[in-house]
Design a protein around this nucleic acid. Structure first.
Lengths: 342, 342
DNA sequence: CCCTTTTGCTTAATCGTTTAACCAAAAATG
DNA sequence: CATTTTTGGTTAAACGATTAAGCAAAAGGG
């Protein structure tokens, strides 16, 4: 039914030459293979007329390189990740690579399946935004000598390429900013997780308090379970506000926590920043909807994505390339939600 | 360097049989090809031991089917589209298909490039969220006998498969709802576009006014240019509020318009819904951040994505399948921002 | 016992490219 | 003029899987 794609052979037939010659010409190797100029031009003309499109599958099969990158994303419905996906796809295209993606939905098992599928498709390498407890898959990839670059989330104990935000510093900056603005009882809501980026955010927060000689309080650092976040956030906020030392500022350590946390704060009728100051990790635009513009940690998505692709492509093209571990600084965008305490 | 993937031949060698036999066994065609049971089991065992992974490229080249879907998305950084992408990828995987995506960034030229790249990769078909003025590409695909399904946005003059929201009805419902709630001067902000989904949203709005015998006003329907939306939205809102008949309600016809519009409304110090009621197309969760929960048109992303994949896969597997044009109803989620006028 | 059928496999072509190796004819060299 | 070099190509194998066709040996039938 379909009109049969034109192949090298079709062009060869029409030009009265062998398929090999056509291949040489069209891959720009006419010169070094001593193809006559006129013949080369004729072949190129025919190729154009027939609208020849090389079959990438055949190319890949022959060359062992698919020029395809597998992108494993923890949760593409999270706008931060969606943006990363956009940047990655764009940058990959610049390098002549195509991206196959899949969402692991923060589930290690799903992530493994996904990686297997993509491996069968012979992707040349992976960019992985790891789900929790997915280290094993990385060891597997390493064993198999398959290139990958971790993006955003990484495991310090695995010595591999990664590109991430300096989360500790970002968190430290967020905390310090609040201190500078006069807040003294600063809390943080994080996910209960052993993922390094999350631990780093907590560490930065604690260090900020210590550095500025602020006494801590156990209740101020709340960890909620991902799968049950919506309800646990409310409880977390409740307990931060209870007791003799209620917080006067909260740092949300992810976009989702912020969205749900702010919803609850709305419901409680608290005013930001008068009743409580807010700083959040996450995505910018959305926070503009809040009655009071939210101070947030802006990650450099553009460069995170680009760096990951660049490193991966380099590694694919030369597997002996040295390991690169890149930490980009985030930028704190200061706005109304954390303005100087009165 | 890499440890050379195991192929059928490797298994054949180890089992002392021909590659063909291994192929028969592993593709479950042992029975009908009269392979001895013991031999079959032995081969399967060896395959497992060697951790054999079939080379999808070779399979595809041979069969002419890549089991890959090209997903062309107008703008993946828009959370609505990102979610669609998630659903599509998931559903495709269920059918044994993989998704290659690319963002066209609402640019017809980029979209064409993207389609070409994906065609070279021999995708079996496309799911396309069209950019404006990209009809030509669709004609091209039709000519080439390549299957595609339009998702979310479609062109009524092109007779092809599509899955979309009944935008006219959704818009009509939004308008009617505002009327019922006592609003009389209802405006809409839309993109200046000849995309059908946008025209439909405007049509639904107008019909709602007519049906309820409300006099219209030219100033109430504002169209802004996509590339210059941020500033034009402000002007649009200004002119809706100016004059002798300022609007008392606004329908935003997309997520982006709403985000930017609400920002401006905040800046103007207007209270929702007392000064102005709001209904928006777009994504749910985000609107919860607004001081007053926003009434919104909820599109059935899950079923939109699933239906598109199902139709496409069916078409790929049987190109003679009849054309399917699916319009799903949206649901109006009524909340504070449009509560009964006092 | 000879012929047919069944069993259990192998051979070889194919998908579309790439590329090393080869070859005949023309041109250059001594 | 005989030999070498250059020119302008062609052939064939390979990538890894599929599958129609073939083929020898064993089993069954009359």
């Amino acid at each position: 039914m379909s009109p049969k794609k034109v192949s090298l052979k079709d062009i060869a037939l029409k030009a009265g030459v062998s398929a090999a010659l056509v291949s040489y010409v069209l891959s720009g190797k006419g010169r070094e293979n001593r193809v006559k100029k006129e013949k080369a031009e004729e072949i190129q003309q025919i190729a154009k007329n027939l609208n020849y499109q090389p079959n990438h599958l055949a190319k890949s099969l022959r060359s062992g390189k698919s020029h395809t990158i597998g992108l494993v994303i923890a949760d593409i419905s999270n706008p931060f990740f969606a943006n990363i996906a956009r940047v990655v796809e764009n940058q990959a295209r610049h390098h002549g690579y195509t991206v196959i993606y899949g969402s692991s939905d923060e589930d290690a098992a799903k992530s493994k399946d996904l990686i297997d599928v993509l491996l069968n498709r012979r992707v040349d390498g992976f960019i992985i935004l790891s789900a929790e407890n997915s280290e094993k898959q990385l060891y597997y990839l390493t064993e198999q000598n398959i290139q990958f670059v971790l993006l955003d989330r990484y495991f310090p104990e695995i010595n591999t390429d990664y590109v991430s935000t300096n989360n500790c510093k970002a968190s430290f900056d967020a905390g310090s900013h609040l201190v500078k603005m006069g807040y003294k009882r600063i809390g943080m809501i994080a996910y209960k997780s052993n993922m390094f980026h999350m631990l780093e955010r907590m560490r930065g927060y604690k260090e900020a308090l210590e550095t500025h000689h602020l006494p801590g309080n156990e209740l101020w650092l709340q960890e909620v379970v991902f799968s049950n976040a919506k309800t646990e956030i409310c409880e977390a906020i409740d307990s931060m506000l209870s007791g003799s030392e209620p917080v006067d500022a909260i740092i949300f350590s992810t976009y989702n926590l912020a969205v749900n946390g702010l919803k609850y704060i709305n419901r409680l009728g608290l005013r930001v920043p008068n009743d409580i100051a807010i700083v959040s990790f996450g995505q910018a635009e959305v926070f503009d909807l809040y009655s009071c513009p939210i101070t947030y940690v802006m990650q450099d998505m553009e460069n995170l994505g680009k760096a990951a692709v660049d490193i991966l492509v380099k590694k694919i093209e030369n597997p002996k390339e040295a390991i690169q571990q890149v930490l980009l600084d985030a930028k704190l965008i200061e706005r109304e939600s954390s303005k100087a305490k009165v």
